[in-house]
Design a binder for these strands. Structure first.
Length: 423
RNA sequence: GUGGCUGUGGUGAAGUGGUUAACACGGCGGAUUGUGGCUCCGUUAUUCGAGGGUUCGAACCCCUUCAGUCACCCCA
């Protein structure tokens, strides 16, 4: 259908675009304060990047990517997330060599996933994310988490819940995997079909399953915190101390597992419960192996992504969105052709003085034009009829006071500036 | 991908087989000569998401499809 956009997409119309601008402004302000710089990567990449980066067995890669062949017969994919692209760009532009370390980046932009649309879930959606690349120090984990939390809190959101876990590293995760497999081996038939396949491919994900049968089966499961290696354990403990110092509340959730394969050590998620089913507003974690996996030097990194649509929904729930203010200072109301010519000239003279101005483009009656000026909340209306056009004057009406005076066209901008200055 | 609910003008909606599809808001026009916000009057859907079928007759029944919505799943 020509009159219908693709499923799961949304237009941002003039009455809501100011809300997006508000959030984007807050993103830039927060990142500026945290010393993160913006990076803009293309919205499509070679499919291979996401296969390797995100993991071939993840849901995103298996069934949610917008993949197509371009005219050069390359397999191209619309980015389902931005971390892989940032890593690619980091390597391609050799940011590990030139910039001060760690490299601290943020991005804002559209992502694409072929999901079934639902509240807070779209096929084109927008993420704000940040990545700190180049250090394994827990201080940067704490900084990244603090950045996400501060951003959301500064917007005024309450009822935010930060959940924290450590998913281990290549040294200790295999051991935990084995522990899990040993634990579930006797209960395999109790698990849902998804989890039965997860048993072999990614047993960690069983912990995350919401199926009551699987939750029951995993009662008494050994927690990963008990199986972390010394390094991961120290790292996790240090992170918790740092968050404590920063005054960031969190709950430990030993079952928190991120859906993307590249995560190591720190994993976190920020929930905003009132959103319902899609309550995750932010997700992130450390990905110490990803850059090497992509062919770069072994480089530790951590990042997060925040769903902007979900943030907007949360802000709406709490009535924290800015009002649309649509005011042009002056509205020019010409009557007749001669007046229109003069009005058009005046319009641009006024605008040159940086005064927001609009005029009638419908050829309507004076009454209708004033009505429109009123709707637009114009402070002044410059009425130009035959008399005024002939004498080079303008009837300038103050819409708040209801008064009007006849002045020369050349005086209009100055008069307005003067009156505005008095306010 | 699976399942539930929904789909009437710009918006919110009434109408659930029978002549011209309520009502409200909004829009447009008007109520003394060129003046808004209040009030009053007029006007504003050849058509009920789309396509097919049943019927003398369909917005109302059936099928298909598209979309929205909610849940599962997944995730931001």
């Amino acid at each position: 259908m020509l009159t219908q956009g693709p499923r799961g997409t949304k237009d941002v119309l003039p009455d809501t675009s100011c809300q997006w601008q508000y959030v984007e402004k807050k993103i830039r302000a927060t990142c500026d304060i945290f010393a993160y710089q913006e990076i803009r990567t293309p919205i499509f990449e070679h499919t291979e990047l996401f296969l390797r980066g995100i993991g071939e067995t993840t849901d995103i890669v298996e069934k949610e990517m917008y993949t197509f062949q371009d005219r050069g017969e390359r397999s191209i994919t619309l980015r389902p997330e931005n971390t892989a692209s940032v890593v690619r760009s980091f390597l391609e532009n050799k940011l590990y060599g030139q910039a001060t370390q760690p490299v601290k980046l943020f991005y804002v932009g559209p992502m694409f996933r072929y999901d079934k649309p639902q509240a807070g879930r779209f096929r084109q959606f927008h993420q704000f994310g940040a990545e700190a690349i180049g250090t394994q120090q827990p201080t940067v984990d704490a900084e990244i988490i603090t950045l996400a939390v501060c951003f959301l809190q500064d917007l005024g959101l309450t009822e935010l819940k930060l959940q924290l876990n450590s998913v281990g590293c290549p040294n200790c995760r295999p051991a935990y995997r084995d522990t899990l497999k040993a634990f579930f081996s006797s209960k395999l038939h109790d698990l849902c079909s998804d989890c039965q396949s997860r048993y072999d491919r990614n047993p960690l994900r069983i912990l995350d399953c919401k199926n009551p049968a699987c939750q029951a089966a995993s009662l008494g499961v050994p927690e990963i915190s008990a199986c972390l290696c010394g390094e991961c354990d120290d790292h996790f403990a240090a992170l918790q101390r740092l968050l404590g110092v920063a005054g960031i509340d969190f709950t430990l959730n030993p079952r928190l597992v991120r859906g993307l394969d590249y995560y190591t050590k720190t994993a976190f998620e920020i929930q905003y419960a009132p959103l319902g089913a899609q309550s995750a507003v932010c997700g992130g974690g450390r990905y110490d192996g990803l850059i090497e996996e992509c062919g770069g030097p072994a480089t530790p990194a951590i990042g997060f992504a925040i769903g902007i649509e979900r943030v907007l929904l949360a802000l709406e729930k709490q009535n924290l969105l800015p009002e649309l203010s649509k005011t042009s200072t002056v509205f020019i109301a010409p009557l007749g052709e001669a007046a229109q010519l003069m009005a058009f000239k005046l319009l641009f003279e006024i605008r040159k003085q940086n005064i927001a101005a609009d005029m009638d483009f419908m050829g309507r009656s004076i009454k209708a034009q004033l009505k429109q000026a009123n709707r637009q909340q114009a402070r002044f209306v410059a009425i130009i009829g035959d008399d005024e056009a002939n004498s080079g004057n303008v009837m300038l009406k103050d819409m708040t006071a209801g008064t009007q005076e006849l002045i020369s066209v050349s005086e209009v901008a100055n008069t307005i500036l003067k009156q505005m200055g008095e306010l």
